[in-house]
Design a protein around this nucleic acid. Structure first.
Ligand SMILES: [Mn+2]
Ligand SMILES: [Mn+2]
Ligand SMILES: [Mn+2]
Ligand SMILES: [Mn+2]
Lengths: 217, 217
DNA sequence: ACATATTTTTAGATTTGCCTAAAAATATAA
DNA sequence: TTATATTTTTAGGCAAATCTAAAAATATGT
């Protein structure tokens, strides 16, 4: 597997989780910040390697083999993110770029030992689940903060968007994984909310509420 | 810096330590397991980037900039080897291939923190010195076991060759970094030796003796 | 010194992954 | 349903890093 191939499989894997049905060339190109013609080239190659099913003009879907490769890369990415945060004291908004590189290091044994060293974590620093060694990704019950009603409470268990900018915003508001959030008010008109975090009460936009995952309590 | 460029600079750096004078195209090709014509292409590119001095038919020598890049890559390689052995419990004969990949991860901050996490080690698991953050490599006093005379003693401080095969041979003989070695006999004819390691006395060839570094005591 | 051997460079291809521009297929809308 | 817009593919090229084969420069031995 080359670096480029791994990145394509990973992107398609993520798109399949977010999207119903076949994944279009354009969607992949947008996600990967490249041109549709480049995507066509690559999916033809991956199709020959039996990592995905491709029908001209009809989009692609991963085969079991392709899904496994993708899950393996995501497993590595997330384990390295845990390492960077837990062991090297990086902040959660600093690790993604470095993990993008580390996820391509090839060594079964390395990942086995890294996983052990980290205590076989189930989630990465952004609350995303870590696939097991067979590529199985267990889904947990969680909803978006925007779906929570007034006077209900939730524990933050993850973020949908994990750009440094958004994560730094959450820091400023003292929201991190495990933080209790109480919805004090919800504006019907624009979906904005007043929430309480520890002793602070403040306003958040619908956009923010749609990017925080919670478990209701 | 691309991966290929970094590997060329690293190879030339090592060749300069081992060789007097200019480094030939052929020497680089042999070290890198590639063809001389490929080397010519690459050194022309690196020359344009001012990372080395190249004169047609005359060989190359690193500039200060090139030396710094090379030392940086070697620093990363050796720090990662320490990590793999000290933290992930890899054996010293298993880490080189993985470090060959990890040495190309780009992040100043990562190396700063990794170094800290490891307690700023001075040597890697094979006894090789780790360049500091400015690319300075301090040389320590050491000689080859083959240079030691009969009845003298030395502490193993490193290995010249560090292939898995050789390291596994040393393991079998219970020789590792820090091990005391006593030369009980030395054959003038072929340079072979009888040495004592802990309570064992055994024969070693000149080849073996020429690949173990010791400090006399 | 001169022929021969060796080293090094050049010329021309190849592979991977990407691009732009144009053509072909598909979707949408009057 | 036919024209228009959008999506997707094809055609042709480019840059990086490699290769083989041939030419050029340098080294060596008698
Ligand atoms: Mn990430
Ligand atoms: Mn993550
Ligand atoms: Mn090594
Ligand atoms: Mn080493």
């Amino acid at each position: 597997m080359t670096l480029a191939e791994e990145n394509y499989l990973k992107a398609i894997f993520h798109l399949e989780l977010e999207t119903a049905g076949e994944i279009s060339t354009n969607a992949i190109a947008e996600r990967m910040d490249t041109k549709p013609s480049s995507v066509t080239d690559m999916v033809q190659k991956l199709s020959e390697k039996k990592l995905l099913i491709y029908k001209r003009y009809k989009g692609v879907s991963l085969t079991e083999a392709g899904r496994k490769v993708a899950a393996g890369v995501i497993r590595k990415h997330r384990l390295w993110e845990v390492f960077l945060v837990e062991k090297l004291n990086f902040h959660w908004d600093e690790v993604h770029e470095i993990a993008e590189q580390l996820e391509h290091i090839q060594s079964e044994e390395l990942i086995t030992r890294l996983d052990q060293f980290l205590g076989s974590p189930d989630f990465d620093p952004h609350g995303d689940p870590i696939p097991d060694k067979h590529g199985v990704l267990k889904r947990t019950e969680k909803k978006l903060l925007s779906e929570i009603e007034k006077n209900q409470q939730g524990i933050c268990v993850g973020v949908k968007e994990s750009s440094p900018e958004f994560l730094q915003y959450l820091d400023k508001k003292k929201v991190s994984i495990g933080t209790k959030i109480t919805v004090l008010g919800k504006e019907f008109f624009d979906g904005s909310m007043i929430i309480q975090v520890f002793d602070d009460q403040f306003f958040i936009s619908k956009t923010v509420a749609e990017n925080i995952y919670v478990q209701t309590i």
